[in-house]
Design a protein around this nucleic acid. Structure first.
Length: 847
DNA sequence: CGGTTCACCTAG
DNA sequence: TCAGCTAGGTGAACCG
């Protein structure tokens, strides 16, 4: 529905410039004169009574300056800023409503209905209908305009209320309507050949397949969007392909200045058809930014799947098969996307069928990864519109909470900082790791380390002082920054974080309660909320360590990480003093060797072996003592505001000696293999390497090093004999780029030397083959000759064209496997060269 | 062949 | 609304 809210006028605030004392010394008459001048500015409507507000220059009087229109705030900001300190001056008007009325995405209201569509509640429809049962549109439109609306919005209900008539309420799972669409386009003419749309309304789907003359096709598409009136628009790569293509075709089919013709072709915005202007009814985007479609959310299923799943390739086919491996219908590919014109000419029905399928799959993928639910949860906890949760930035989420608290606490809102990037601040501490196997390792972890540090030291730009005031003991960070104690002033950030932490504990408790009472839907709902709270809490540090955020100071971020380093290093030093070797540590985690009897096995003995009873007993004893040790350490090193948790128990930990690369056999609280950093985690690895490395880890952690090396040697032999599937050798990496004015991609802006990069070369070949390239997409390739420089590669196009690519350079892949595996097996005397040679003279063991 | 640069991707 | 952060490993290409 459309709710026209009355009673809020755009404004900004002004204060006398300079230090508080100087500002206070200005005479009343002078202030009066200045205010009169400010009021004389065009577009200024009124100036309110002064209010005391905290600023970096001390507490000063602030006046609210109301202006005529939202977009006029920017116009008056500059002239006023020359004389006054200006605050609250860069907050967009729609956000102002949520901030001032303290609303989140879920609201209740008392409103007067002005118009009701066919999907509106029947009683509302009846109340507005005339004798013939019709809602008189002309009268309604007139009434809507008289209260400030623009005409008939394409929503089910149009109503008007006052800002006092809206209240925030408890969140609920909103029955959002999602529209997914897909275009098939001509490669030779850039035109749109056909399109498909599917609308999901509470699980009920409505499909449309569109073909015909291009402008009529776009008109139909627009009509479907407006009639089905979705909240969310999705599809596969619509941000970078389908939406830009419709925009391009609109520019060709209608003159840029003819907005009403433009609206017929691409008027997808949730505003009346007659709402003129680019960006109101016609979707727009600034260079390389998100699409903005008034009143609707654009959620690209490609982007969401990429962020959630980090798939090795990103075609719709690949991701669908990844998520739905049992769906046979996804296997077959009827259409060669690189020959679309011919396919369309010869088999239009198949192309249309394929097009419809490609609108349904994005819906199913979004549902499978709970994308909408997660975004809605984030919107709830950050108190932002769904659109901001989907396409907004971390600083927008943080702004939403910080600004409303600052407004309540009488703190002036500074503007986003500009200027040059400052030097980097120091980050977390990472401990050196000794290569090899480390048996029985307890992993301890600080709970929400950075947020905890911010809370316990009251870190905020409003509490930072240059030195301790008389008689006040400040929190002094290891880099010498002082923060006032709670008793003097509670920082905005610590207060918000504390509240989010409490909320998260509550959501976790509710989730547990729901699971226990068999309410699965409820448990999922609360799980989403607690997870969103975690994400939001962890976003604070980054935003406050940034150089541009409105409430930051470089010493804030630097102090947080300095405290973190100092805390973790102190614990490491204590443990090492007590002869508990610390095997590894990264930022907020500590991996400690557990004291177990010297003959404790780290691999679980096979019950069929002789002596297995004793071995099993020793293994189990070691496991239990590790758990006790971990729990003791957690308790001992936890202090108020810095809770150390025993997170994981490993029967064995292995690293080849590089930071951020390790693997462990987890035996508490659950049994699984924990891998970090290694190629098996990376989306630019290839199947074969991932598989052999995973097997190797499994064997190493069981103490079967010899078998592990044999398997690697065997694989290298098979690669050289071409006894492996090319599919398992595909490497892919994301590729930047830009689309020129002529619609042709180019790479010179994104890269210094684009042709030096294998994936750029592969991308160019892909484009040559007639396939779409969108900036940022992952490009798959096979190396066919690495003896030249640069090496020769071919793009992997099987998912798009169905044409098998089977040429590859065996020696290249043998070397890549040997390099990656050699780093690991070197701990047992087999380096990359040995693996390639296939034998080893003097070693721990040789075959 | 070792060092340098650019670029990607990951840990936290 | 232009915009979360740093630490770290690794590969490809090039250069001297």
């Amino acid at each position: 529905m459309t709710l026209i809210v009355r009673g809020l006028r755009p404004y900004l605030e002004i204060a006398l410039p300079g230090a508080a004392a100087d500002a206070a010394a200005v005479s009343d008459a002078e202030v009066e004169r200045m205010l009169t001048n400010a009021l004389a500015q065009p577009e200024v409507v009124s100036i309110g009574e002064p209010v005391e507000k905290w600023t970096e220059d001390g507490v000063k009087r602030h006046w609210r300056v109301e202006v005529t229109q939202p977009f006029k705030v920017k116009d008056v900001r500059r002239p006023l800023g020359e004389i006054w300190d200006v605050s609250s001056a860069d907050i967009v008007f729609p956000q102002r409503l949520l901030l001032d009325a303290d609303l989140g995405p879920h609201i209740e209201y008392n409103a007067e209905a002005l118009m009701a569509g066919l999907r509106a509640p029947p009683e509302l429809l009846a109340g507005l209908s005339d004798a013939s049962g019709e809602v008189p549109r002309l009268v309604a439109a007139e009434r809507i305009r008289s209260v400030g609306g623009a005409g008939i919005y394409p929503t089910d209900v149009i109503a008007v209320c006052s800002i006092e008539d809206i209240r925030g309420i408890e969140p609920f799972a909103t029955p959002l309507v999602t529209l997914s669409f897909d275009l098939e386009t001509s490669i030779t003419h850039d035109t749109i050949l056909c399109a498909a749309v599917v609308i999901d309304r509470a699980g009920e789907r409505e499909e449309h397949a569109l073909q015909g003359e291009e402008s009529q096709l776009l008109e139909s598409l627009t009509r479907i969007v407006r009639e089905s009136d979705p909240d969310i628009i999705t599809g596969w790569n619509i941000d970078n392909f389908d939406l830009p293509r419709i925009g391009m075709r609109r520019d060709v089919l209608a003159s840029k200045s003819d907005v009403s013709r433009g609206a017929e072709l691409f008027g997808w915005g949730r505003v009346p058809m007659e709402s003129g202007g680019e960006g109101r009814i016609i979707p727009t985007r600034q260079q390389n930014r998100r699409w903005r479609m008034t009143g609707r959310c654009v959620m690209d299923a490609w982007w969401e799947a990429r962020m959630t799943l980090r798939p090795r390739r990103e075609s719709l086919k690949f991701v669908s098969e990844l998520l739905f491996p049992d769906r046979e219908d996804l296997r077959k590919l009827d259409i060669d996307a690189s020959q679309m014109d011919a396919e369309w000419a010869n088999r239009p029905d198949e192309v249309l069928h394929y097009c419809v399928r490609d609108t349904v799959l994005p819906l199913e993928i979004l549902s499978e990864i709970h994308a909408t639910m997660r975004k809605e949860a984030l919107a709830v906890v950050a108190k932002v519109p769904l659109e901001t949760a989907i396409g907004g930035t971390t600083s927008q989420w943080i702004d939403s909470l910080v600004i409303r608290l600052a407004d309540r606490e009488g703190i002036a809102i500074p503007r986003t900082k500009g200027g040059a990037r400052r030097d980097q601040i120091a980050g977390g501490y990472v401990h050196e790791v000794e290569p090899g196997i480390h048996p029985w390792v307890a992993v301890l972890d600080f709970k929400s380390m950075y947020p905890s540090i911010m809370i316990s030291n009251n870190i905020c730009s409003t509490t930072r002082v240059n030195s301790s005031p008389d008689g006040v003991t400040t929190h002094e960070s290891p880099i010498g920054t002082h923060f006032l104690p709670n008793s003097e002033r509670v920082g905005l950030v610590p207060r918000l974080l504390q509240d989010l932490m409490t909320q998260r504990d509550q959501q976790k408790a509710l989730m547990k309660h729901c699971s226990q009472t068999g309410d699965d839907a409820g448990a999922r709902f609360h799980d989403q909320l607690q997870y969103a709270l975690k994400i939001l809490m962890n976003s604070f540090y980054g935003v406050f360590a940034s150089s541009f955020y409105r409430f930051t100071h470089p010493d804030l971020g630097a102090s947080i990480t300095a405290w973190a380093r100092s805390n973790i290093k102190a614990i490491i030093a204590t443990l090492e003093d007590e002869n508990h070797p610390v095997v590894y540590s990264d930022t907020d985690s500590i991996f400690v060797s557990t004291p177990v009897p010297p003959d404790s096995p780290f691999s679980k003995p096979n019950p069929d072996d002789d002596n297995s009873q004793e071995g099993l007993r020793n293994y189990e004893e070691a496991r239990v003592s590790m758990i006790e040790f971990g729990q003791q350490l957690a308790e001992r090193f936890s202090v108020a505001g810095a809770e150390l948790e025993f997170e994981t128990g490993l029967s064995a930990f292995f690293s080849h000696g590089a930071k951020k690369r390790y693997v462990g056999r987890m035996v508490w609280p659950e049994e699984k293999l924990l891998v970090r950093g290694y190629e098996v985690r990376r989306s630019d690895s290839f199947n074969l390497l991932t598989q052999v490395m995973m097997e190797t880890f499994d064997r190493i952690l069981e103490g079967e090093q010899e078998t592990a090396v044999r398997a690697v040697l065997d694989l290298i032999g098979r690669i050289r004999k071409r006894d492996v599937k090319p599919l398992d050798l595909v490497i892919s990496r994301s590729c930047k780029g830009h689309i020129g004015r002529d619609g042709i991609p180019y790479f010179t802006k994104a890269y210094d030397h684009p042709d030096r990069l294998p994936y750029v070369r592969a991308a160019k070949d892909r484009i040559k083959a007639g396939l779409a390239f969108t900036p940022g997409m992952k490009i798959g390739w096979l190396v066919i000759d690495h003896s030249t420089s640069p090496m020769k590669v071919v793009p992997w196009l099987v998912e798009e064209t169905g044409i098998e690519q089977d040429d590859y350079d065996p020696e290249f892949y043998a070397k890549r496997v040997a390099t990656a595996m050699g780093r690991i097996t070197e701990a047992f005397g087999w380096n990359a060269d040995d693996l390639l040679k296939g034998n080893r003279q003097t070693t721990l063991f040789s075959f």
